[in-house]
Amino acid sequence: MPRSPQEIFERYVYAGAMTRNADAVAESFTEDGVLEAPLMPPGASFPRRLVGRDEIRTALAAYYARQARDDRVPNLEKSGYVLHTTSDPDVFIAEIDTVFDGDGDADDTAVSLVQIFRVREDRIARLRDYFAPGLMS
């Protein structure tokens, strides 16, 4: 039975945002999958475009290693998302509002983004991730 958009999305989020497991993120993509962050400027710390499972794995492992000191984890009770299906059964859109708890007196940090997923055989064939580039530095 094919995976639902919800299952594909939750698997991807758990592998990336929750556990920062580059191997698991890469395995959620097709062998020729594409991960794009079109709003990222050239030379940014987060890759703008990755093609293929191996490149996704390698680049995200390096990115997660650079971010190791950032121990922020999304507050799941304050965060949320809405999935939108489309007329194309292989495409769905995620609207995401992620909240990170503030440190002591600091306010919570809210991050809003949109992701467009194109899937093939229960894996992500293309993911376009739209977020404010300053959030990934």
Rank of each mutant, 00 (worst) to 15 (best):
M1H: 13
M1R: 14
P2E: 08
P2G: 02
R3F: 11
S4V: 10
P5M: 04
P5A: 07
E7L: 08
I8K: 02
E10W: 04
E10I: 06
R11P: 06
R11N: 14
A17K: 02
A17T: 12
A17S: 12
R20S: 11
N21Y: 00
A22H: 02
D23A: 14
A24F: 03
A24D: 12
A24K: 01
V25S: 07
V25W: 00
A26I: 04
A26K: 06
S28R: 00
S28H: 00
F29R: 05
T30L: 00
T30H: 03
G33R: 02
G33P: 01
L35R: 03
M40Y: 06
M40A: 14
P42H: 07
G43Y: 12
S45F: 07
F46H: 12
P47V: 03
V51P: 01
V51G: 00
V51H: 09
G52P: 06
G52T: 00
D54G: 05
D54W: 04
T58Y: 00
A59Q: 14
L60M: 11
L60I: 03
A62Y: 10
Y63A: 02
A65F: 07
R66S: 13
Q67Y: 01
Q67A: 14
R69Y: 11
D71Y: 02
V73E: 10
V73T: 15
N75G: 02
N75F: 10
L76E: 15
E77K: 14
K78V: 01
K78D: 09
T85Y: 04
S87I: 14
S87M: 14
D88P: 07
D88S: 15
A94T: 01
A94D: 05
I96H: 04
D97E: 15
V99S: 08
F100D: 03
F100A: 06
D103N: 01
D105G: 01
D107W: 02
D108G: 12
D108M: 06
T109S: 09
T109H: 10
V111R: 07
S112F: 11
L113I: 08
L113N: 13
F117R: 01
R118Y: 00
E121D: 15
D122P: 05
R123S: 04
I124R: 02
A125Q: 14
A125D: 13
R126H: 15
L127Q: 05
D129S: 04
A132M: 08
G134L: 11
M136V: 08
